[in-house]
Simulated assay, not measured.
Amino acid sequence: MSERDLAARQAELVAALTSGKPVPQGFDAPRVEAARVALLRKRAGEVSRQWPMLAASFGAGFKREFARWAAARPTRGSLRDGWDMARELRLTGAAAEELAGREVSMRYDGAAAPRPRRSPAIRSAGGAVVLQIAGRVRVIRRAR
């Protein structure tokens, strides 16, 4: 087997493990599936450390919900995975504030890596307003 063939087989295996692609011929499908599930659980744990309020909003079902969302998406890192997932959901409460806090403190267009925001920014999150000025993020909750 040439290096090119080996590289192609490795790429097929990685795609099966991380992007939901078919298991390449010659690999044990149940073992590849077990490894894929374990990698999704690991990714969910990493995302829950980066996005604790997002994870808490799902309770014990976060790993299952994240695995469903991420099954056909290759990882882009836990910060970006959580950010992409949070943007697709209709978040409320602390999870919405967490997303708004990230949105005001960093620029992220969904393609390039997040980078610090230098200009002032403001976002509304449910019952709160999140404001960033001079690098400081403040959450202002409305009186009830």
Rank of each mutant, 00 (worst) to 15 (best):
M1Y: 14
M1T: 06
M1N: 09
S2K: 06
E3Y: 08
E3N: 12
R4S: 11
R4Y: 07
A7Q: 14
A7Y: 08
R9G: 01
R9E: 14
R9Y: 06
Q10R: 11
A11K: 13
A11I: 06
A16Y: 08
A16F: 05
A16W: 10
T18Q: 05
S19A: 15
S19V: 04
S19M: 03
G20L: 03
K21G: 01
K21W: 05
K21M: 03
P22W: 05
V23N: 02
V23G: 05
V23E: 02
P24D: 01
Q25L: 10
G26A: 06
F27W: 07
F27Y: 12
D28P: 05
A29Q: 06
A29P: 07
R31C: 05
R31K: 15
E33H: 01
A35V: 01
V37Y: 02
A38E: 15
L39W: 03
L39N: 09
L40I: 08
R41P: 01
K42Q: 10
R43H: 08
R43W: 04
G45H: 05
V47D: 04
V47C: 04
S48R: 12
R49G: 12
R49Y: 11
P52A: 12
M53S: 14
L54I: 07
A56E: 14
A56K: 15
S57N: 09
F58D: 00
G59Q: 12
A60V: 11
F62R: 12
K63S: 15
E65D: 12
E65I: 03
F66P: 00
A67Y: 04
R68Q: 09
W69R: 01
A70G: 07
A70H: 11
A71V: 05
T75D: 03
T75R: 01
R76H: 09
R76L: 03
S78M: 03
S78Y: 06
S78A: 12
L79S: 07
R80I: 07
D81Q: 03
W83V: 02
W83D: 04
D84C: 01
D84S: 05
M85D: 04
M85S: 03
A86P: 08
R87P: 00
R87A: 01
E88A: 08
E88M: 06
T92P: 02
A94Q: 14
A96V: 06
E97P: 06
L99K: 10
L99E: 08
L99I: 02
A100P: 11
G101P: 11
G101E: 14
G101I: 06
R102H: 15
V104C: 13
V104G: 09
S105W: 06
M106H: 15
M106F: 08
R107H: 02
Y108H: 04
A111E: 08
A111N: 00
A112S: 10
A113F: 00
P114F: 04
R117F: 00
R117G: 02
R117S: 07
P120K: 10
A121D: 13
I122C: 14
R123D: 06
G126F: 10
G126T: 13
G127C: 07
G127H: 14
G127R: 15
A134T: 14
R136H: 07
V137Y: 15
R138Q: 13
R138P: 02
R138L: 13
I140C: 13
I140M: 13
R142Q: 15
R142W: 09
A143Q: 09
R144H: 01
R144L: 02
